[in-house]
Design a protein around this nucleic acid. Structure first.
Length: 268
DNA sequence: GTTCTAGAAC
DNA sequence: GTTCTAGAAC
């Protein structure tokens, strides 16, 4: 089987369950999520639209062929990928907490010019630390500033835009995007430039380590505050003193979890 | 997409 | 001399 058409082969499977678990992550009626065979980050998945009528292999050959076809159909495919990506991100975040004790950002988007046939949405953690991250092209294809990586959120807004603008964007001309891959090696977090990949990789690892340290310390402070609050509450401390501590300025991030659910306080 | 490798860069 | 890149081959 032609290596280049490997994704199309997966997307064609009537029964994705038959794919080995080393390749298959999960699937639903319209999408299939696989592990990237050469992950460029700690977490790196590809979400493929499955080839189910009326969708054809030709229509799903690339993001370009999808966008240049029926607009409503394109929108539907993108929405299904979006829904699948949300679920994958939740699972990645759970795994981040399990294995690393904190969560870091996850990017969801397409390469403007894909190298493997068949539409595939990248869901990739922002560390960009992986043995398979080997050259400038690899790195720049995910650099959030260079423009080669197209966030799904952005593409979802295209069909709502001016039709002539939509048509222009849908061309996804390689000549427009390929130069982005040749830009100098700069850290996407601090913009510092590096002479070669080994030096950049070393720096990316340091950035990620620093983030881990920062985030773990922040979570610890938060948990300690919470424990103290509960202790004080048990002793019947005045509600006003409690409120004062709760509005701690060191933790501006809004949290989904209510502070008064002690049963879950270790997870966050 | 990867592997291989010649020659540039250091 | 060794490391690294980048283009060709697959």
């Amino acid at each position: 089987m032609d290596e280049e058409k490997i994704l199309r082969k997966y997307a064609r499977k009537a029964d994705p369950q038959s794919l080995p678990p080393t390749i298959r992550f999960e699937y639903d009626e319209h999408t299939l999520t696989v592990y990237d065979a050469y992950p460029k980050s700690v977490f790196h998945f590809l979400i493929l639209p499955r080839i189910v009528p009326p969708l054809t292999a030709g229509r799903l050959a690339s993001l370009r062929t999808l966008l240049q076809g029926d607009k409503a159909q394109a929108k539907e495919v993108l929405d299904r990928l979006d829904a699948a990506a949300k679920i994958v991100r939740e699972q990645i975040e759970a795994e981040m907490l399990n294995r690393f004790g904190y969560k870091w950002s996850i990017w969801t988007g397409f390469h403007a010019v894909q190298s493997m046939e068949h539409v595939h949405l990248h869901v990739i953690s922002s560390d960009l630390c992986s043995p398979s991250m080997k050259n400038k092209k690899h790195y720049n294809s995910f650099h959030p500033e260079h423009g080669f990586f197209l966030p799904l959120e952005e593409i979802l807004s295209w069909p709502e835009a001016e039709p002539s603008w939509y048509a222009t964007m849908s061309e996804l001309r390689p000549s427009q995007y390929e130069p982005f891959l040749k830009e100098s090696l700069s850290c996407w977090r601090c913009y510092k430039e590096f002479k070669n990949m080994p030096l950049l990789k070393e720096h990316l690892q340091e950035e990620w380590d620093a983030e881990a340290k920062r985030e773990r310390a922040r979570l610890e402070r938060k948990q300690k505050l919470e424990q103290d609050r509960l202790k004080k509450a048990d002793r019947g401390e005045s509600p006003s003193a409690k409120r004062q501590r709760e509005s701690s300025p060191s933790d501006p991030e809004p949290k989904r979890q209510r502070a008064d659910s002690p049963s879950q306080s270790t997870q966050d």
